[in-house]
Write a protein that binds this DNA or RNA. Sequence first.
DNA 1: ATCAAATACTTGACTGAGTCCAGAATCAAG
DNA 2: CTTGATTCTGGACTCAGTCAAGTATTTGAT
Lengths: 144, 144
Amino acid sequence: MRHAADTFGILLRERGVQVTAQRVALMRAVAEHPHATADILADQVRAVIGTVSRQAVYDSLGVLVDRGLLRRIQPAGSPARYEGRVGDNHHHLICRECGATVDVDCAVGAMPCLIANDDHGYEIDEAEVVYWGRCPACRSAAHP
Amino acid sequence: MRHAADTFGILLRERGVQVTAQRVALMRAVAEHPHATADILADQVRAVIGTVSRQAVYDSLGVLVDRGLLRRIQPAGSPARYEGRVGDNHHHLICRECGATVDVDCAVGAMPCLIANDDHGYEIDEAEVVYWGRCPACRSAAHP
DNA sequence: ATCAAATACTTGACTGAGTCCAGAATCAAG
DNA sequence: CTTGATTCTGGACTCAGTCAAGTATTTGAT
């Protein structure tokens, strides 16, 4: 997967983010494990480049999110999760039991995809939608 | 406010929740401070009945949420907040800068008020919507 | 009204997720 | 290859919340 690694390097440079082994490995880890937590990603990165501090992982995730290369989602009752699919304002469908998360396309796509019927004077820039339910696995496990 | 206190007692009993001074005080605190955090509520309760352990606050909030007397909301980057308005699946509008939270009526009203266009086999029971933006105060503070 | 059983509360230690800090290492331009 | 900026490391720390064991309160049956 040499090619993919290069691609990430270019992506980073484009956004003015310094290119380091950790960051490239992180980008790759996110691409391979969408909706993973910082811990899981740290493990993935360690599997590839040996050792990374937790701090470096948080720092890099922070930078990458800031520069719009990653998106952070923070569902209730779960640590933050990260995904590489940015810029299309899609939503998420999360299993109440096991936390399994899948993407759901937004019919609108553009950034506040829903209009509040009373904005209370706020300047709204995003409508975040989370669908809660039970995934197929948990449903069948529930009534055997 | 003797009357309100009685009302809360009756409410609790109706839902099969044991009536204690702490719980009544908690219900009242939530009614008076919608969208408050557990800490703020604990302080409110202490101001009324002297002393409460943090644990009691968390326990009671948990029970009250379970029995449908309160609703817990967990916005990204903030501790959990509680409100007494339950059963109508309204949404929230939160200030990115100061966290100020206001209720927004759900345009549709019914419980999963938005239908995902692909449910991935999930059994969806709720569509949670959070509008993110800047409140009037933070807007005017930003460009003086 | 009383008493036992069920339920709730207190205290204090503990966990998980994330942040802060200061010094060491690494990077990208000149 | 040097330099100044950026990033990484390790360790201490914070914040929000949970666990566990013992004590107190509420409740429902007498």
